[in-house]
Amino acid sequence: MIELRNDRLAFSFPEVHRDARCSISFMRTLRIPDDDHEYPLPPGLGPFPLHHVDDYADRVPQGWSDHGGVFMPMYQAEALWISFDGQYPMAVKVSAGKIDAVTGKPFRNELRRRPQDYVVIPDQPWLDGFCVRKGLIRQFVAMPLGQGYTAEEQLTGAAEHGGLQIVAYPMKASRYEKLMAERIFAHYDMDAICCSPPEPSAMGLAPGGMMRQEVYPDDHGYSAWERDVRSRCFVHLLNSGQYRTVTGFAPPYEPPTAGDYTEAGLPWFEYFDTDLEALEGAPRLDRLDSVGARRVKEGKPPLDEGANVKPKPAQIERLRKNHAVRDESSAW
């Protein structure tokens, strides 16, 4: 089952094992420059607020009630990263607009072994974007559906789904017990308002700037997963401009630009796990236009990233598994 707890999706599979729990949250962050340079990991600026679609069924865009799930507000061109937290191994599929973020293939509920279309908790502490090449991702950036920027629209030609789709599979209890006995776990130390409201608008995720991040292969093997048991959630993205109209709450503040953040001397991050190789990226995703590239093609000015986005070495904190804390919300 999945519950909403403190703006986190709390997954639990008591029918598999009492320890089979994990949580997934969606972190606000800087949009890194979309200039084909490679950037380290930007900080977390706190989680996006999440709401049950059912609580606002009469005000959310058409079709969302059919999907069920949750929704959260995002500004146009705002970025996010997905934080995975838990000790019990889980295989988690992440799709944007029903395009798999690891392989670029169309969404399906089942786990795919080759190419691996899922990430493994707790090896993978977070995912910041589409896995385009080995060790490189393109940042998740929210764009309105219907303008052609999202991965979904570029790959399918249709703006049908938007949002994020998450499916989690727990490890088989027997494998988990064996792992516990061997005690080979990695222990993570992780923790525009309208007078006459327009139709609330849905958003999808487009590929943004390039970031150094590895998506790790399944170290447990395909047979480790309880493939008959899964929980899934559709995470809708609501344009922040309509958030108050739908929920009555003020949307979160706009995040600082990457330039302002860097100028303030605040940290960026690099994560490395020397034990694990990275998955190859997905050529299908690598061929997509980033938001910046598409704007150039359309003769539009680049998005404002602020000046001097060059994190100095002293600003880059290197994180290992036991120091994988990247949420700098307290700094803001």
């Binding site: 999945i2 519950e3 999907h67 069920g68 959630c233 559709f234």
Partner: peptide, 10 residues
């Protein structure tokens, strides 16, 4: 009694 997130048709 804990409230489950409803999964729909997608």
């Amino acid at each position: 009694v804990a409230r489950e997130i409803r999964d729909g048709d997608w």
